[in-house]
Computed example of a mutant assay.
Amino acid sequence: MDDPVDNKPPSFWQMLHSVMAAAFGVQSGKNRERDFTHGKPSHFVILGVLFTAVFGLTLFAIVKLVLYLAGV
């Protein structure tokens, strides 16, 4: 299913998994090869920007919640 020699482009979930793994520095060589061979760079850039925005907003919300609960 995740064979890098497969000629199908990666699915949305495979690309999201790759973006998240790359963000945390744990991307496997097999997935990296699949992404570079069959994926479109623009899709990964868009997903990367969206992931970064959601991650940043999540951290911001957690900090605001902790400060609110701490009474600050």
Rank of each mutant, 00 (worst) to 15 (best):
R34E: 00
D35R: 02
V72G: 15
H17T: 09
H38Q: 09
G71R: 03
T52I: 08
H17V: 01
T52G: 10
L59V: 13
L16A: 10
G39C: 07
T37Y: 00
R32M: 07
Y68K: 11
K30R: 15
F36P: 00
I62S: 11
F24A: 12
G48H: 07
S28H: 07
V49E: 03
L59Q: 10
A21T: 08
F51Q: 05
D3I: 02
G48L: 01
G56H: 09
E33T: 13
V26C: 14
F24N: 14
E33M: 09
G39F: 00
W13L: 14
A61Q: 12
T37Q: 03
F55G: 07
D35C: 13
G48Y: 00
M1F: 05
F44W: 05
A70W: 09
V54R: 10
K40F: 06
V66C: 05
L67D: 10
A61I: 06
K64L: 14
F24R: 15
V66P: 00
T58D: 10
D35N: 08
R34A: 04
A53I: 15
Y68D: 11
R32Y: 07
A70G: 12
M20Q: 13
A23W: 04
G29R: 14
F51G: 00
I62Q: 13
Q14C: 03
L47A: 12
G29W: 08
R32N: 04
A22Q: 11
Q14D: 06
G25T: 11
D2C: 00
L67V: 10
P41V: 05
L65Y: 15
P9M: 01
V45P: 04
K40G: 12
S18T: 07
R34S: 03
F24C: 12
Y68F: 15
V49C: 04
V72T: 08
V26Y: 08
T58K: 03
K64C: 08
A53F: 14
D6S: 05
F24V: 15
T58H: 11
G71M: 01
K30D: 04
G56N: 15
V63F: 15
N31D: 04
F24G: 14
F51L: 03
L65P: 02
F12R: 09
P9Y: 01
S42Q: 11
Q27N: 13
K30E: 13
A53C: 06
P9F: 05
A70E: 06
P9N: 07
F51K: 04
V5C: 09
H38M: 07
W13G: 09
L69K: 09
F55M: 15
K40E: 15
V66A: 13
L69T: 12
P41H: 02
A53Q: 06
F36C: 14
T52R: 12
P9K: 01
L47P: 14
G39T: 05
N31G: 02
K40S: 15
T58I: 10
R32D: 05
V63Y: 12
P10N: 06
V5I: 07
